[in-house]
Design a protein around this nucleic acid. Sequence first.
DNA 1: CGGTTAGTTGAGAAAGCTCAACAGATGTGG
DNA 2: CCACATCTGTTGAGCTTTCTCAACTAACCG
Lengths: 261, 261
Amino acid sequence: MYAEPACESTLSMPTPSRWPVVPIEPAVREAAPRPAPRCSACSLRPACMPPDLTSSELQQLDTVVLTTRNVRRGETLFRAHDPFQSLYAVRTGSFKTIVMHRDGREQVTGFQIPGEPLGLDGVCSGTHSCDAIALEDSTVCIIPFVQLETFCRESRRMQRHLYQLMSGEIVRESSLMMLLGTMTAEQRLAAFLLDLAARFQKRGYSGAHFNLKMSREEIGCFLGMKLETVSRMFSRFQREGLVEPNGKQIRIVDLEGLARV
Amino acid sequence: MYAEPACESTLSMPTPSRWPVVPIEPAVREAAPRPAPRCSACSLRPACMPPDLTSSELQQLDTVVLTTRNVRRGETLFRAHDPFQSLYAVRTGSFKTIVMHRDGREQVTGFQIPGEPLGLDGVCSGTHSCDAIALEDSTVCIIPFVQLETFCRESRRMQRHLYQLMSGEIVRESSLMMLLGTMTAEQRLAAFLLDLAARFQKRGYSGAHFNLKMSREEIGCFLGMKLETVSRMFSRFQREGLVEPNGKQIRIVDLEGLARV
DNA sequence: CGGTTAGTTGAGAAAGCTCAACAGATGTGG
DNA sequence: CCACATCTGTTGAGCTTTCTCAACTAACCG
């Protein structure tokens, strides 16, 4: 999400569909799984898979991850209560995950950018517990869970990787709880921008200048505050010379200052 | 924690230590691992392990979980930055897990009662990311992670169980984020008491009458509010006839009312 | 080029925090 | 076993942060 890095644009180029029978029309192409460019050749593999797979493991991985799926902006990849079949890895674009209370209140529990996993919530009950919604036109790789389990019984590296992925999600959520439980609105937004900057940097994009794909309301819903407060905090950061916000374009001017907030 | 159920008291009876060499003295006995009563015979197994293990799987489980450890009230089972070696299952007593910010602010991320897991945060980086502190004198089973991984490659049931355990933790934390992000202080305390009641009921204790082992401050630190606010909310619930709090003794009078808050 | 949505800003209201006093419970040493 | 010190919990008063409601502007879309 956020940035539009030229270097990834090839990933979002439409691939000819080999989905059986179904005629290739926009409405269909959008929902239809399609052959995945192979993991073994994927530029996102370092972000997504263990670094040290052998070539035979890579080969087997290619037989597990066979398809991708396109999700248009605003559409759901899965919803709460959907049966859980597969994990997903964001390939292009970006998503938000939300949990909904019965009374309609919703909480954004995360934003996912390319290379990041989706669907881990579904393992425990066999049913998804949140909605995953595309923030822009996006693509995901589909990882059928039963096949992945089999693979993990045969490959220690892959087994360990999946455990680490899930544990990482647990740790990420703990620090989010810390954010929601102990920080002021100002500190939350600063922490959010710093986290974003770090994730971009890690992927080789600029950590200082990016493009938010989510609205002020979605940021607020993630950080536990109202959109007006988000907006005020952006203005405050601008006044203090920490950040140069221009709508969804964000330029971080003073990284250390932001960290000190 | 909370309740002192007579039915579990046998679990906390001291077992003769066979820890090699070390003389049996209080200071030592408290820290020393000791032989675990076997999983195959454990009354907590339904809460802790998959329900459908074969007898050969049970036998193998007994070779993985060989020891327990006692932790005195206020002491840590592990700390953030400790190397990760093992998962733990609470056997008797109760724990809190906390994440600490560099500036000293801390957030309680969970309370664990018998049958619940500890240490899943350590898998992702090989280092624990939180402190686990005993709320009362407690015992845990020690589950060496490398052996568990081996077991999971051999047993689908166990493999699936560990995935479910971790995913369950992810889902639990999401709903906590929802709580912290969208609810009022009153709603948070109500949700907390209801969650507690449900967990007790599930273990066969009274869901309507229990004994909190954590302080008002710890509750506040978990729910993202100050201890004074926790205390005021307890008083409010009492005035409204929902809960009969008597210090740490809690009696839930009107479960539906509490759910409606 | 209207109509709609997203973002900014202000003013007043409300929830929760801080500080402070006090009461009960708990623990400790004489 | 009591007296004293220390924690833990409760309650009140005033203050701060954030929310709510409202007006307005800019950007986007058909």
